[in-house]
Amino acid sequence: MELLDSYLRAVKRYLPRAQSSDIIKELSDDLRSQLEEKETAAGCPLTDEEIAAFLKQHGDPMTVARRYRQDSPSLTIGWELIGPELFPMYLILLSINLVITIAALTIVSLSMRAQITWQTFTLPVIIQIFCVTLAFMAMNVVKRKFPQPWYYPPAEMAAMMQIKRGYSISGLILWSPVLLWWLALPRFPSLILGSAAAHLVLAPSWHNFYVPILLLVLASISQRVLNLFYPDWTWLLPVMRLLINAASVPVLYFLLFKSQPLVLVAAAFQGVPQYEKLAEAVNGSLVWGVFGPWLWGYAGISALVYAWYCLPHLRRLLRGKAGASSATVSQSPEK
């Protein structure tokens, strides 16, 4: 019943905290009773696929939890802007944002010895409220339109679901231009340097990172191509993305913190202060912008998330091996 436990955990995430354990206990008993009834009718234990189909039919975790939150507060002006299941998370995030904004503005104002008035905070606070509300409104719309567990699907269930072809195609549409761009860069440096390419050249250290990054992009595209033709290979997505993101972390680390400049002034312009400064600025924007720490952090966090999604596949693999070896042991005395 690993799948059922995973499903219940996902439902619990969206329930009112004070009642969540109680509701889950009751829901768990009901679902287990239904599954047992199905097993009795079938005369054999249900397979993971059958349990997954049953849970899918029961509804996505957020919709199930939403039924218990009918009376909970939501943001509704004529129509629902932020549903009751997202509203508590919205309030928490908005509060955190506002506290950080006000604290940062106070510290900056004090350090600059500027006068602190209501006007200091009004505009930044309004911007924060607007942005956070807009983000949650968008999330609310997406969750209503696509009620399948696309956002944090329970890892066990994600392991069971076929990878939608549309998902692989959208990935290919996104990554193919990136691959073409990367392939064209050595011949057309202006694709990354812009007009500065007339005075700058890609440095040898750039070429050290060129092939590893090309391989990572190719691996990412290969996973999507394979899953397009084999949507049942559900293990491929988390495994490949874990490997790609985990490999990106050291590559980006060396690129960010240990590498020589990525671009140099072209031989004809060396020693000209204007172009030396230009090279410095372009290096800075490449290291702290295009390949900046944000990308490094993103790769690290993604690696951890995909490691989590690999776990159910690993468990199934080990279970399969254990099952195979115990079957061999139980068969051996008969031989």
């Binding site: 509701i23 829901l27 029961h58 039924r67």
Partner: peptide, 8 residues
């Protein structure tokens, strides 16, 4: 009645 309606 489905459980999602009954329990709430």
């Amino acid at each position: 009645i489905d459980e999602g309606t009954l329990y709430p």
